[in-house]
């Protein structure tokens, strides 16, 4: 599904290398987690995959089902099936949540040569999916993320994911700022989208989220590289001992 080879990335505006050769292969239907200390390059990986400005790719590749993501515009990556759930979803005053979602869904369908959803079809689908995420009609009507609580913002991300039906979902610290109940709700939303084909890359600091979204593979990232890969037990090791032991071990 997602194949990242020797990905090297620096900042555009200053001489600073952030990713120093990341290798990562995620198969169809797999859930991978990336953990790592602050500043290790986890969020940068997600932004570079999604195509955010400000980064300069100096080497390597990232393909989604064989297609080079790094050559595509962000909207093309989305249409190709990539989805990034943001750590800090942006508030956009004046743009209605529903209008935005429908525009996005139909833009992607159009880009893929599929028929656009009618207003009625869309409404029916969004209502059903919003209900399972406990997103009420009022939240759908409000401007995108404006006045949403931390939990509401993250649920809104998952709603977008559910509506856009991506192949590859990247969740950037989706647990940050969430209380236990909100995290459970978000995790349930994510788990509902696991269908054996859709793949996930879950970026997190904490094991706790991985209790709810169970990963197949756990990677530890440090200083711009994947330094260790293992099963779910690796996340527990981090939780118990911190990163210091692992980093000392691989150094």
């Amino acid at each position: 599904m997602l194949n990242i080879k020797n990905l090297q990335v620096g900042l555009e505006e200053e001489e600073k290398q952030i990713l120093k050769g990341v290798d990562l292969n995620i198969g169809e239907g797999e859930v991978h987690a990336i953990m790592g200390p602050n500043g290790s390059g986890k969020s940068t990986t997600s932004y570079v995959l999604a195509g955010k400005d400000g980064y300069e790719v100096t080497g390597g590749s990232a393909t989604l089902n064989g297609e080079e993501l790094l050559d595509m515009e962000p909207e093309e990556r989305a249409a190709a099936g990539l989805f990034l759930a943001f750590q800090y979803p942006v508030e956009i005053p004046g743009v209605g949540n529903m209008t935005f979602l429908r525009t996005a869904v139909n833009a992607q369908r159009k880009a893929r040569g599929e028929e656009e959803l009618s207003a009625g079809e869309f409404l029916k689908e969004v209502r059903a999916k919003a209900k399972s995420l406990k997103i009420d009609a009022d939240m759908l009507k409000r401007p995108v993320n404006v006045g949403f609580s931390g939990g509401e913002k993250k649920r809104n991300e998952i709603l977008q994911m559910a509506m856009l039906e991506p192949k590859m979902c990247v969740l950037d610290e989706t647990d940050s700022g969430l209380d236990v109940d909100a995290m459970k709700l978000v995790a349930e939303g994510v788990n509902a989208l696991r269908d054996g084909k859709r793949s996930f890359l879950v970026i997190t600091h904490y094991q706790r989220l991985l209790d709810h979204i169970k990963p197949d593979v756990v990677h530890i990232m440090a200083d711009g590289k994947i330094v260790k890969t293992g099963g779910p037990e690796l996340a527990l090791e981090v939780e118990n001992n911190g990163y210091a032991d692992i980093l000392a071990e691989v150094a």
């Binding site: 195509g51 400005d53 515009e73 962000p74 909207e75 249409a79 942006v90 956009i92 743009v95 996005a104």
Partner: peptide
């Protein structure tokens, strides 16, 4: 905000128009 919209598949020009209208 622009990147947020584009990352969801809204083409850049359309995303910019959405923000201008907003």
């Amino acid at each position: 905000a622009l990147f947020y919209l584009i990352s969801r598949g809204v083409p850049r020009k359309q995303a910019q128009d959405m923000l201008v209208l907003a």
